[in-house]
Amino acid sequence: MPSGNDEQQRILRARAAALARVPEESGAEGDRIEIVEFSLASERYAIESAYIGAVHPLKELTPLPCTPSFVLGVINLRGQILSIIDLREFFDLPERGVSGLSKVIVLRSDSMEFGLLADAVIEARWIPRSTLRPALPTLTDVREEYLLGVTQERLVVLDGGRILSDRGFVVHEEV
């Protein structure tokens, strides 16, 4: 079975190359931040993990009536009621609805806690802060407002602190 052997050889070689890769944290430790990368409407975003409590699969979403359209609803997370915000409303992204594979990224601060809707959570990784660049001029105002920076791989890193502190997310409406 020479083809099978070739395949095995190729896989083994790829794994060897991955193990042989030099870790990137060789730079200064103070300059690194950990981000959690996620995808939303075919675009990839990331948030600094310091503002993230946890990530969870989106289950049993209960829509809330009489709320703004960016509030998708609430979920029960281990006995705690958590509101879910859809950032696509702000970023003018095309809506794809909510699937069973959707995830919730729980943003947490001392004064605020809510969940962000994500299509998929890709990974948590460390990046040097120096690789972050200022926002691109093509970005709209809102994203620019929440933007922390853009990595070399054009990954948009959002600023969790600003999102959490944005009073626009506080819903105080009466019907």
Binding site: E34, V36, P57, K103, E123, A124
Partner: peptide, 15 residues
């Protein structure tokens, strides 16, 4: 997927 989420959570907790 869940393992991935777990890994992400673990990384967050570790950080």
């Amino acid at each position: 997927e869940q393992s991935n989420l777990l890994a992400v959570n673990a990384a967050i907790e570790a950080a």
